[in-house]
């Protein structure tokens, strides 16, 4: 009994310690004098592997989710004779919720796991250690560009997701189910507020980007440098990243729209 309590306490201490380590890690990676000549090419390289390579999955997923929403929404709304509100329903649910959250989850699965695995592999093959021995800080050379790339990419991906999703919803709603195009758009435009809905959706995306990328690079950097450790870091990134997104989404939604 006593031993169990002890092990719970030890586990708790471990968690708190690793949180502290991750904060120090982020601070050391990001706080320094910027050197655009060397940093910019690294950032562009990472924007490519983190952002551009995630584009396809985001576009495809957004398109299908928009179409499904329109289809489902129509079948419900048509019972109340309110199918004109389809545009509003599709747009609001995508811009405020599904866009940031689903793109964040996909990003954690696609880019986050890749980041953690890549950094873990660099650690296991002593690339990080050799960089340190060459006199270059891997936190600046490897971690920082990946972090910034994630921070820039996810909000852009989230907005692309939303735009494609609404387009997909329109295709199904207007072209297939025959909702009037004019009322579809005007209903949407009167219901969606730029500041309240669109900007808050983007803010959510930015928050998710920070959390997911942070988890990914830290898990990779902090992993046990063996193949088992890398696979664990990859799994942890997806699991922790997804849970963090969903939890944070609730908190942010409560803060943003709770008083309405």
């Amino acid at each position: 009994m006593l031993r169990q309590i002890e092990s719970i306490g030890a586990r708790g201490l471990e968690v708190v310690e690793s949180i502290g380590r991750s904060v120090v890690f982020l601070y050391q990676s990001l706080v320094r004098v910027p050197r655009p000549r060397t940093s910019l090419p690294l950032l562009i390289q990472q924007l490519y592997s983190v952002g551009v390579l995630s584009l396809v999955i985001i576009v495809v997923a957004g398109f299908f989710i928009g179409m499904v929403l329109a289809l489902q929404g129509y079948s419900i709304l048509v019972r109340f004779g309110a199918e004109q509100a389809l545009g509003q329903m599709v747009a609001l649910s995508i811009v405020m919720e599904l866009g940031p959250v689903v793109s964040g989850l996909l990003f954690a699965g696609r880019a986050g796991s890749a980041l953690a695995a890549e950094i873990g592999l660099m650690k296991a093959t002593e690339q990080l250690a050799s960089m340190e021995m060459i006199g270059v800080d891997p936190l600046h050379q490897v971690i920082a560009p990946r972090f910034w790339a994630g921070l820039i990419s996810l909000p852009l991906l989230g907005m692309i997701f939303s735009a494609v999703g609404i387009f997909g919803g329109m295709l199904v709603g207007v072209d297939w189910l025959g909702v009037d195009s004019g009322s579809f758009w005007s209903n949407m435009q009167s219901a969606v507020d730029f500041h309240r809905d669109v900007l808050n959706g983007v803010i959510k995306s930015i928050a998710f980007a920070v959390v997911v990328t942070w988890i990914a690079v830290f898990q990779g950097y902090d992993c046990v440098p063996t193949s088992e450790g890398i696979s664990r870091a990859t799994t942890n990134t997806v699991v922790y990243g997804s849970l963090a997104i969903l939890g944070l989404d609730f908190v942010l939604t409560a803060l943003m729209f709770g008083d309405l």
Binding site: Q45, L121, M122, T125, E126, Q127, A129, S130, M131, E132, M133, I134, G135, D137
Partner: peptide, 19 residues
């Protein structure tokens, strides 16, 4: 970091940057 510039190290695996 100054001292490290004066030493080279050959790692067991070579540790070449894979990218």
């Amino acid at each position: 970091f100054d001292v490290r510039k004066r030493m080279g190290m050959l790692f067991q695996s070579g540790a070449l940057f894979s990218d």
